[in-house]
Write a protein that binds this DNA or RNA. Structure first.
Lengths: 345, 345
DNA sequence: TTGAAAGCGTTACCAA
DNA sequence: TTGGTAACGCTTTCAA
């Protein structure tokens, strides 16, 4: 009685056997008709389709999935093991998601979005084991390199956006972080900057590779090696702002900042200005990603562009190749320096 | 033979009966043990859990869903019937998605992301009928007011982000578009602007409500009514830029632009500058949404803030209430004017 | 060309 | 407290 008041059943949806009864045939015939099998007579098929349409019938995907042992779904997982705040804020990832949704939808699959928060233990095995999806795309390696490495040994339909590391057996798609970072730092050196600081968290593989490129550029500076310096900064606006502010307070001299991401770079600019420093006059700043904000912030941000449309298309393509049992190797795409105002004249 | 070369089976995952065999009990006992039922003896439960853990067992969600008649999944659908380009680009929606992912995950559900592209016919019935999700959140009414109205009659667990229209039976969450737009236009009037143009596509319900607020503000201007003028502009950066450019070319005089969204406002600023006009000196510009770009673009954008964290929390809360069979009415949240540089001194 | 029946991996009811 | 069994709604093999 109480139950009847709080719980209310929604109208039971039609199932295939209902359609079969209404059309005066067996369920198996309806199944064949709906699948467009050539076995069922043309006129009968049309009659069945009409009945199904009239009753708004849609095949129950739970039953269908169980029977067919596939879900027509791709899981997109975002590990946030490294984030201070556990919310998905970086526009880069979010833009990437939108592109992935496009590509996955286009192939007639659904996209299941999974945020993964600490404690991280066993998340990938659970995700694979639950069989909610036919394949998995992981956006960003975060702190999960080892988990990915372990899973890839037995689970093939797995593609990761991130940095390509040496001795890595899972499939990654990403831009050439080392070359991209090196190029943008070389650009800073060309503009006369000598005390260039890297702002970012090198415990994340992609960031680590960018740091590597940064160091290479300094080491091979045309007028002799320049000293490297890394200031750790997490990926959120607030954390990066704080890190920049603390570094300014330390009174160490510098004339340029290499943000590990655009979000970090933009936050650094805000902190620099708050401290009375001018960008790019006093301090030049560059970022990485070319999120849409980069072209619209003030000053506009010199950065390294990652082609997300291409990247997401590539990831989905590789994943589907793997779903078909074929091998699909990692792919590294070129990164392009986009020169704007923040790196100075 | 050829098949064997191209298709490769992944290692068959353990199922519940495997665990049952290994532990020397019946499947039903394993099921109970895994569910934490008090019926199964403590020591036996632990033995079963250990066996399951050793073999990395995870319950197959396809089978579980079918049996339980629920999916622990929420579909988030984004109708793009109105978009020129069919890709999900508006940062506002994308930020909203991120928050929704947070809220849905927190309640132990998965989030299924669905873009809906033209032709739109029947998409909602299909989405409901397929039973891939227990409930549905629709982000933006787009052109789909009627479809929503029809579906809401029989399907309760449906919540829509968008404008609250009169005589609407489906559940919406959104900010008070009329009041928000009215307030920001009143702000422009206070700053001395007299020829204020609305830039946006009023065929979308939310935008239509903002246009209404805009008109109200003009009508009740303190020194007598001001003339309204709407320039239609679709929601993408490119379309808005083009629309603004064309309007500038028309030589009609104006001194302020009300962008229906921040994306439109930012694009308008770009077009105005390209035409040699200064913002805010020659033309004041305001937007709507307060996406993160608004605080960082140049000049910074005066806009109407929608609290997305609160909005998404509200949507998910209402949806879950509806899943439990309770009624849950629409909710309208206040909108707040954020004054920045683009509206002038 | 159609019908009957088995089976996908769970959970829940009924017996023991 | 445990085991057996039916059922969730569909697809597919085998018979007719």
């Amino acid at each position: 009685m109480l139950l009847a008041m709080t719980k209310r059943r929604r109208p039971t949806a039609a199932k295939m056997s209902d359609i079969a009864n209404a059309a005066g045939v067996h369920v198996s015939t309806v199944s064949r008709a709906l699948a467009g099998s050539s076995l069922v007579a043309e006129d009968l098929r049309e009659r069945i389709l009409k009945v199904a349409h009239e009753r708004n019938y849609v095949v129950n995907s739970m039953a269908r999935n169980l029977r067919l042992q596939r879900t027509q779904t791709i899981s997109v997982a975002i590990p946030l093991g490294h984030e201070a705040v556990q919310t998905l804020t970086d526009p880069f990832f979010v833009e990437l998601l939108a592109f992935l949704a496009d590509e996955i939808t286009q192939r007639g699959h659904s996209m299941l979005l999974k945020k993964v928060l600490p404690p991280m233990s066993g998340w990938l095995d659970r995700l694979i084991g639950a069989r909610q999806a036919d394949g998995i795309i992981v956006v960003g390696q975060s702190t999960e390199h080892e988990a990915l490495e372990a899973a890839a040994a037995t689970f093939k339909p797995l593609v990761v956006w991130g940095g390509h590391l040496k001795q890595q057996s899972y499939c990654t798609v990403g831009t050439d972080n080392v070359a991209g970072a090196r190029a943008v730092v070389e650009h800073l050196i060309k503009r006369g900057r000598r005390r260039i600081v890297f702002l970012g968290d090198p415990s994340i593989p992609e960031i680590r590779l960018r740091q590597l490129g940064y160091r290479e550029a300094l080491k091979h500076a045309p007028r002799g090696p320049l000293p490297p310096r890394t200031v750790p900064a997490r990926l959120t606006m607030e954390a990066a702002y704080e890190a920049m502010r603390a570094f300014i307070d330390s009174k160490i001299e510098f004339d340029a900042i290499v943000g590990a991401t655009d979000v970090i770079a933009v936050s650094a600019i805000r902190a620099l200005r708050a401290a009375g420093l001018e960008v790019p006059k006093d301090i030049a700043v560059v970022g990485y990603d070319d999120i849409s904000l980069a072209a619209h912030c003030s000053p506009t941000l010199t950065t390294v562009r990652q082609d997300l449309a291409r990247g997401s298309k590539m990831m989905v393509e590789l994943l589907f190749r793997r779903l078909e049992g074929m091998d699909a190797p990692s792919a590294t795409m070129p990164a392009e320096v986009i020169v704007r105002e923040s790196s100075g004249p």
